[in-house]
Design a protein around this nucleic acid. Structure first.
Lengths: 232, 232
DNA sequence: TAGTGGTCTAGACCACAGC
DNA sequence: CTGTGGTCTAGACCACTAG
């Protein structure tokens, strides 16, 4: 068994779909036909078809059969990497400067969205540098109820994002990507011209039902863009 | 059988991981232990664990067992929906107005990037409206060598993106997301103020080795942002 | 070398949707 | 109804690797 039979079956079918030989809407052979064709049991055929269905490549209907699905464009995979990793991995020097660091009880709307009113929140503001040039301003709130260890970290040696990734397993993350023009303070901090375009990434992270952190990163759009790649 | 047993097993395990009861690195019960616990066959346990592995939630090692994986840093799932679908699905009226439509031989850099020099390219420029308000300007190039049928379509009844999704199966798509400020023509077309922030989405689509289309969409950032959601 | 996961079999019964 | 996929069983042998 060089390669499991179910994988060979899956690849055969996938190749026929990707090549266009089996067009969207076409019915692929029934399970019992594939059993006969490959001389295997139905469970093996099933193990081949199940990942194709999970990947959205085929649709399976009782009594009708399995069908090639049309391409969807509703979900793609976008890398929103940890900034420190991304910068160092392309060979540039990374630096994070802490501008402010404060622990206070949740008062503002963004703080109360993270934790209940009056609960302790750590707020860190700072700048990400790539090769000495300011790349992004970040304002981060950390729920100290969920991550009490963060009280003892000063984030001069490691960025809050990097530290959190290592210290706290997360289960859910939500992103919003938008565009803004630089306003006064951020404009100065990132050394931008007035009205310079900025890419804004907001991320909220959960662990189960518990909120961990929320962060708002404002990028110099001339120096940063997101890329995504998807194969169907 | 209200819910398949393998799904119940999978959900039980997933809940324990997401709640933090089973931390990253911890070993989850062996297959034979789960068999005894749920009183089922090993194939059923296997059907429960396989999707967890595929989702990156656990790692399975022969002779050692299955282990909870730490969170991955680098990939999230971003919905970049088809615009027409997205607008209509939230109950707003959708409209696409064609501004220009031309067939010419590839000359410019963006055209030659799509096809070989001198090959025919269909260029369509237009505006997407949501509830009568301009939302995005789009400039699209279509490789007529790959999609000759596009010669006969005028895109007044259907947007180029929607038509291509139905007419041409694609296998690869690449996106770039950036920010810009409105310049003259787009500013007027989208009824924006000078220096208004815009979210720019560029997409290139392949079918196998063949380029299908490339499109650049400029969104009014006040009216549009991308959202992404990921569960680990 | 022993014990884990990886894969497979040859059946079985059931749920559901086309006919 | 009938035939499809959905799920499950109680085994089996193999591949790999940790001890």
């Amino acid at each position: 068994m060089q390669q499991p039979l179910n994988q060979r079956i899956r690849q055969d079918i996938e190749a026929r779909i990707r090549s266009g030989e089996w067009r969207p809407g076409a019915r692929i052979p029934f399970e019992h036909e594939l059993m006969a064709q490959y001389g295997c049991s139905r469970m093996t055929v099933n193990a081949a078809l199940k990942p194709l269905e999970a990947a959205g490549l085929i649709e399976r209907r009782r009594r009708a059969g399995s069908f090639v699905r049309g391409p969807r464009l509703d979900a793609t995979i976008l890398a929103i990497p940890d900034l420190q990793n991304e910068i160092t991995s392309r060979g540039e020097a990374y630096q994070f400067d802490v501008l402010t660091r404060a622990i206070q009880s949740a008062v503002s709307a963004s703080e109360r969205e993270l934790v209940g009113a009056g609960q302790p929140v750590l707020t860190v503001e700072g700048i990400h540098y790539a090769s000495g040039r300011p790349l992004a301003f970040e304002r981060r709130l950390i729920n100290l109820d969920a991550v009490p260890e963060a009280r003892e970290v000063d984030f001069t040696q490691i960025s809050p994002g990097q530290w959190l990734l290592k210290a706290v397993p997360w289960t859910e993350a939500e992103h919003q990507i938008s565009a803004e023009t630089a306003d006064g303070p951020v404009m100065r901090l990132l050394n931008l011209d007035r009205h310079a375009p900025c890419l804004v990434v907001e991320r909220r992270t959960w662990r189960g039902e518990q909120r961990i952190t929320s962060v708002r990163q404002i990028f110099d759009a001339r120096a940063y863009r997101l890329t995504a790649h998807f194969h169907h």
